[in-house]
């Protein structure tokens, strides 16, 4: 038991107190950028990489997607079984079509997910991610959101988080460990 505890501690994100639940215990239903329904059970047996964002975000989100695209290119065919998903925290503006136009700029293995507000909230709860709408003057708004990239083993167990400001050179080795 001690061994397991030590293992968990080493892999756990520094500032998060609660770990994401295993993919198999998640209960959200979302729609991908091609309009297909996606449930956690669809990802059974495959490694998973998920991050939260929104397409009205000009800085953090495209930067993360650019990084992920570079990692996927470096991994090549080894990443073909990896599920890579951007879950929108702004479903009001991020329709499947809006997501399609956005993800088409990056590695084609990246999918966009959106859905009704309560399903997005369920997904965030399952991943232990948070997001918050921030209103700007003139009726415009932006979203604060968890910036890390979540990794899960093929059996659905949470593996680790790649933090936004983490040295990106460590990302690919981390990913390789998750894929196997």
């Amino acid at each position: 038991m001690l061994g397991v505890g030590a293992y968990r501690t080493r892999n756990r994100p520094a500032r998060s107190e609660v770990l994401p639940v295993p993919i198999g215990q998640m209960t959200w239903t979302l729609t991908d950028h091609q309009g297909r329904l996606v449930r956690p059970s669809d990802w059974a047996g495959r490694p998973v990489m998920v991050f939260f964002g929104f397409t009205w975000c000009p800085d953090v989100c495209p930067t993360t997607l650019s990084d992920i695209s570079l990692w996927l290119e470096e991994l090549g065919a080894d990443a073909d079984r990896l599920i890579v998903a951007l879950i929108s925290v702004d479903p009001e503006r991020d329709t499947p079509d809006a997501l399609a136009g956005y993800v088409s700029n990056f590695d084609p293995r990246i999918i966009g997910l959106t859905g009704p507000a309560d399903e997005v909230a369920q997904a965030a709860a399952d991943f232990r991610a948070t997001y918050r709408r921030v209103d700007k003057e003139g009726g415009d708004y932006t979203m604060d959101h968890t910036a890390g990239v979540f990794l899960f083993h093929p059996d659905g167990r949470f593996a680790s988080i790649i933090d936004f400001h983490e040295d990106r050179r460590f990302a690919v080795p981390k990913l390789r460990r998750t894929l196997s």
């Binding site: 500032r15 998060s16 936004f164």
Partner: peptide
């Protein structure tokens, strides 16, 4: 019409600008 200076801040894993 509305250019502004922003700073992306990641605190406790949460990005805001």
């Amino acid at each position: 019409g509305m250019p502004m200076l922003h700073e992306t801040v990641v605190q406790d894993g949460i990005a805001s600008m």
